[in-house]
């Protein structure tokens, strides 16, 4: 496959999957965001930090509309970004992935990346709706979250490399090794320092919808890139023998 074609299908796959992610979020996550921001506003009024005036609501509607309208655009930017990483890993690992066609291979890889880069880090540092996060700790939380994702991702690659050196019946050791390694990291990493002040029902429902949204992305990118790859990867040459 030509370099330009490879880059184009990777970016297109990411954009489509991101569009799906943004649309799903718009439908199922936005109501929880509105609810949480409503609580945040009430807290601002109660603390005297803001006043319940027309000016407040005019300003609020202005930036809230901007935030909501960004959901799908941000989904596409994030989709292109994570899709780029997915494309790199797929291209490098395609021959080693199980499955008898590119769609299956791509879906298996998206499942692995969903688990190692999203679900496991999510269990340690789950998504939170507005009102929960403290602005003072945002940098620390970003460092913790990114570090855990990186450790999990590089850990998975490391144990995969190890598994290649082991014979077939010992490959399971590498899988167990990753499990033990990431469990140790899970326990060792510091907790999210923020206190949960929002109602737990709201937080838990928001988290569930958030997982559905991100899962829609990983499922979509696996299917879409796999289909593009299957369609375009074989360079067919027709040779005439006389």
């Amino acid at each position: 496959m030509k370099t330009s074609l490879f880059i184009i299908i990777v970016l297109l796959s990411g954009a489509f999957a991101g569009l799906i992610h943004g649309t799903v979020n718009f439908a199922i996550v936005e109501p929880y965001l509105d609810q949480a921001i409503g609580i945040e506003n009430q807290n601002l009024f109660a603390s005297g930090e803001e006043e319940d005036t027309t000016e407040f609501w005019v300003e609020y509607e202005g930036y809230r509309t901007w935030q909501k309208s960004g959901q799908i655009l941000a989904g596409m930017i994030l989709g292109i970004s994570v899709g780029a990483l997915f494309g790199i890993v797929f291209a490098l690992s395609r021959n080693a992935l199980p499955g008898n066609n590119d769609v299956k291979k791509s879906l298996i890889l998206s499942g692995i990346m969903w688990l190692t880069l999203y679900i496991i880090p999510f269990l340690k540092y789950p998504a939170n709706p507005p009102t929960v996060g403290d602005g003072e700790t945002v940098v620390l939380r970003a460092i913790l979250y990114l570090s855990f994702i990186a450790i999990s991702g590089f850990g998975a690659v490391g144990f995969y490399q190890l598994s290649k050196k082991l014979k077939d019946n010992k490959k399971i050791i590498a899988l167990v090794g990753y499990g033990v390694f990431i469990s140790a990291v899970f326990i060792a990493m510091p907790e999210n320092p923020d206190e949960l002040t929002a109602p737990m029902d709201l937080v838990n429902e928001f988290r569930f919808m958030s997982v559905l949204g991100v899962t829609s992305f990983w499922a979509s990118i696996g299917i879409i890139l796999g289909l593009f790859w299957r369609k375009l990867s074989s360079q067919k040459e027709t040779t005439h023998y006389n």
Partner: peptide, 10 residues
């Protein structure tokens, strides 16, 4: 602009 996706994506 990315606020809602930022929360929703974790």
């Amino acid at each position: 602009l990315t606020h809602d996706m930022r929360h929703a994506a974790g």
